[in-house]
Write a protein that binds this DNA or RNA. Structure first.
Length: 564
RNA sequence: UGGGGAAUGGUGUAAUGGCAGCACGACUGACUCUGGAUCAGUUAGUCUAGGUUCGAAUCCUAGUUCCCCAGCCA
């Protein structure tokens, strides 16, 4: 089976098509997503997940979820659970194929024994420091360990002793006997097993020796009959070693294909750096909406579909690139535009009194829930004499290209009436505008003028007496620099964006939002998409701004073109 | 002065000896009861130098730049 897509094939799918054409695996396609359970998944992992699960799906194959749990010192059950949850959230399913490298510990050990018997592995007593010294450098060959030529019998006995817990951590290792002068450092007698008296989240303390990733990964793929083992570029140097193990053992040989990991502007995507952000308190946790973790993005309001679309659009290649975060946000808006119900909310309220509107009068105005989806229907929004509009929507001295409200100017209140600003009320001491006195034209009910006259702007609003109070959290990029990793001196924390979070404690939202539930996403008209935060209570809704709408006026103003 | 990879508009990615295309961004304009959405248009690229060829992003030679590797991490 070969796959044609609307977009051109990437080099990985090309390889698979070719393998299928030549019958390399009998047309079988079997991939796997192999996370280490030592942290939370982020957008970079999403790229790999979409690739592996996506390819399996396209070729009618399978994709396993396999935890690379070979280092009990760093791994935890909590991460295993979180990873499963996140992969499911993205919309992928591994059926009953949930595997663990630790499932194969006994087999791996037997293979190690086999290599010892073949004279291809030995127990080495060098300390970690000595191993480093003996390894040589990039340009100079290493030296052979004095323990390299122990007899098979002695090696077997020592290996058993290691497994039986007779030696302290770090005192010995099992090493492959390859070539200490090899130009590829990974081939200079790499460690296969190390002694670690640690409790493993799955195997408890059944083991006190653990295989290294290098000795485990290729064989795990082999056991699962993975046809295409897709991984990131840094493992390219390891491929000869995996091949060596597979060949020595004479077992099924998956094909490893390496691609470039994702980088995104204005963010960092390494587990170590994300951990620092959390530990040093630069963010509120792994699910902080500013984090590029899947949990953070979920809380922020990202949809699985938006992320999957993004992963498809960025493509796959071997070039080390950095994707513009604008593309991610574009995919987000594209998806949210289709699905998010519209609603009116005023973030920075300015009080407006409609002088000629009856005192105590209330009307229910009909509003469209989603112009992109006629099936979403309509709702009623209460209108009354005292309203709030956005402070940004009024200028006492409007620049040329400012279309919104100004003294003497008429605008439309969405789904309601045309109103004209008659008077500006200011605080006598500060001079701050505190209220606008307006009049409305009763003939424009619903927002259209029977005489056909036009207004240049439509403003969103809420009725003061009916609005619900809400807290809104505005987010911006976590870093001020597009390449935070490249800033000098102290590194990426030097360019943390001090304005990455702005909390507006008292905003007003229309009453239809009363039953809103955590993680629901709305478009606040003219402002952006907002997601209900789990911090919400029945007293007070809390919203996260997922992403703004494209804002032409902001662009004009920022470019200094407001008056031209 | 080792080995393994990679270089196409600002960004990401196609073209596999035959018109350098698509998307994001930026910039125009049209439309609009969201300055949203939508639509139309403009902008801008083959790392360098030679060579092969009727024809080169693609093949060859030399160079340049960038990434990865000296964990008992993955």
């Amino acid at each position: 089976m070969s796959v044609k897509r609307s977009t051109r094939l990437d080099f990985i799918r090309e390889i698979i098509n070719e393998d299928n054409r030549t019958g390399k695996h009998g047309g079988r396609v079997h991939t796997r997503f192999p996370p280490e359970p030592n942290g939370y998944l982020h957008i970079g992992h999403a790229k790999s997940i979409c690739l592996n699960f996506g390819i399996a799906e396209e070729y009618g194959g399978l994709c396993n979820l396999r935890f690379d749990d070979t280092n009990p010192v760093k791994e935890e059950q909590e991460y295993i659970d979180a990873i499963k949850e996140d992969v499911h959230w993205l919309g992928f399913d591994w059926g009953d194929r949930e595997y663990y490298a630790s499932d194969y510990f006994e087999q791996l050990y037997q293979w190690a024994v086999q290599l010892v018997k073949k004279g291809k592995a030995y127990v080495c007593d060098l300390t970690p420091e000595q191993v480093r010294e003996y390894r040589g450098t990039l340009t100079e060959p290493g030296r052979e360990s004095p323990y390299r030529n122990r007899s098979v019998e002695e090696n077997l006995e020592l290996l058993e002793g290691m497994r039986a817990g007779r030696f302290p951590d770090g005192s010995r290792t099992l090493r492959a006997k390859i070539d200490m002068a090899h130009p590829n450092l990974n081939m200079r007698d790499p460690v296969m097993y190390r002694i670690l008296h640690a409790c493993h989240p799955r195997t408890g303390d059944r083991w006190c020796i653990y295989p290294t990733y290098d000795f485990a990964h290729g064989q795990c793929d082999s056991i699962e009959r993975i046809t295409h083992s897709i991984c990131t570029l840094e493992f390219e140097n390891h491929r000869p070693l995996y091949d060596w193990f597979l060949d020595q053992l004479g077992i099924f040989h998956p094909q490893q294909i390496e691609f470039a990991r994702l980088n995104l502007t204005y963010t960092v995507l390494s587990k170590r750096k994300l951990l620092r952000l959390v530990e040093e308190g630069h963010v509120r946790g792994w699910d902080d909406p500013r984090m590029p973790t899947l949990r953070g993005m979920r809380r922020r309001g990202y949809t699985p579909q938006a992320i999957r679309n993004f992963c498809e659009r960025i493509g796959v290649a071997k070039f080390n690139s950095t994707v513009d975060i604008d593309l991610l946000e574009h995919c987000l808006r594209e998806d949210l535009n289709r699905r998010a119900p519209r609603v009116m909310a005023v973030l920075r309220p300015l009080r407006v009194v409609i002088d000629n509107y009856p005192e105590g009068g209330v009307e229910q105005m009909e509003a469209i829930n989603n112009p992109e989806d006629p099936g979403a229907g309509t709702r009623k929004v209460p209108f009354s004499r005292v309203l709030y509009i956005e402070r940004d929507d009024f200028r006492e001295e409007p620049p040329k290209r400012f279309y919104r409200l100004a003294p003497g100017r008429e605008v439309r209140l969405r789904y309601a009436y045309f109103v004209t600003c008659r008077e500006v009320v200011k605080d006598e001491e500060t001079g701050e505008v505190v209220e606008l006195r307006c009049t409305y034209d009763p003939a424009t009910r619903g927002g259209a003028a029977p005489d056909g006259r036009k207004v240049k702007a439509t403003l969103h609003w809420v009725s003061a007496a009916h609005a619900l109070e809400a807290e809104v959290r505005l987010y911006d990029h976590l870093f001020t620099e597009p390449y935070p990793e490249d800033v000098g001196e102290g590194g990426f924390t030097d360019c943390l964006n001090p304005r990455s979070l702005e909390v507006i404690p008292r905003c007003w939202v229309e009453p239809s939002l009363a039953p809103a539930q955590p993680l629901e996403i709305y478009q606040f008209e003219r402002l952006g998409y907002f997601c209900v935060d789990p911090d919400s209570t029945c007293q007070k809704l809390v919203f996260n701004r997922t992403v703004t709408l494209k804002d032409r006026w902001a662009k004009i103003e920022k470019a200094g073109k407001a008056n031209v």
